[in-house]
Computed example of a mutant assay.
Amino acid sequence: MEIKRYEGKHATVTFDETTCIHAGRCVGRLPGVFNLERDPWINPDAADVDALEETIKACPSGALGISRKDR
């Protein structure tokens, strides 16, 4: 299992591809952050960190994680 890390100024987002069920909530809620047509596909700095955290908490599989740098 490889968990990928995406570093941002205010938060680090983690993604476990083996856990993801491709529900699409992340892409639907924050397409500026989660964009499958871009490499890397996650840009933590493309949204407010509070909105980012709420979107990650809504991930039904738990494949996404967040570590805020302001806490």
Rank of each mutant, 00 (worst) to 15 (best):
R29H: 10
A23C: 07
K4V: 15
A63I: 13
A11D: 04
A46I: 04
I66C: 14
C20A: 07
L64W: 11
G24Q: 02
D39H: 11
F34M: 11
A23V: 09
R68V: 06
D70R: 06
D45A: 06
R29C: 02
R5K: 15
K57D: 00
M1D: 07
F15D: 07
H22R: 07
R38I: 05
A51K: 08
R38Q: 01
T19S: 08
C26S: 06
V13S: 14
W41M: 03
F34T: 07
D48V: 02
D70S: 10
R38Y: 10
E53R: 04
R29I: 00
D50T: 13
A23R: 03
I56P: 03
W41E: 08
E54H: 00
D48Y: 09
E17C: 03
D16S: 13
D39F: 03
I56V: 08
L52F: 05
V13I: 15
F34R: 01
E53P: 02
V33P: 09
S61P: 09
E17M: 03
R5G: 03
R71A: 15
S61H: 01
M1T: 15
D45F: 05
P44Y: 06
A63F: 12
T19W: 08
E2I: 09
I21H: 00
K57C: 06
T12L: 14
E17I: 10
S61E: 09
E37A: 00
G24A: 03
C26M: 09
E2G: 06
G28V: 11
K4I: 15
S67V: 13
R38E: 01
G28K: 07
C20P: 07
K57Q: 07
P60R: 07
K4Y: 15
V33W: 08
E53I: 03
K57G: 13
E7G: 01
L64A: 02
D70W: 00
G24K: 06
R25I: 15
F34G: 11
I42Y: 02
T19I: 06
F15N: 09
E37L: 09
L30I: 02
E17N: 04
G62E: 14
G8T: 10
R25C: 01
C20L: 00
C59Y: 08
M1F: 14
I66E: 02
A47S: 10
R5F: 14
F15M: 05
P40Y: 14
S67R: 14
F15A: 02
M1L: 11
R38V: 05
A58M: 15
I42T: 11
L52Q: 06
E2K: 13
L36G: 01
L64N: 08
W41I: 07
V33D: 11
R38T: 12
L36T: 01
N35Q: 07
V33S: 03
H22T: 08
T12W: 13
E53T: 12
P40L: 11
E7L: 12
P40S: 10
R68E: 09
A23S: 09
V13C: 14
V49G: 11
C26A: 13
R38W: 03
T12S: 14
T19G: 09
G65E: 15
I66P: 13
Y6P: 14
I3A: 11
C20R: 01
I21S: 01
F34K: 05
T19H: 06
R29N: 02
T18F: 14
A63G: 14
A46H: 12
I66G: 12
T55L: 06
G62V: 03
F34I: 11
L30T: 04
G62C: 08
T55Q: 10
I66Q: 12
A23F: 12
K57H: 09
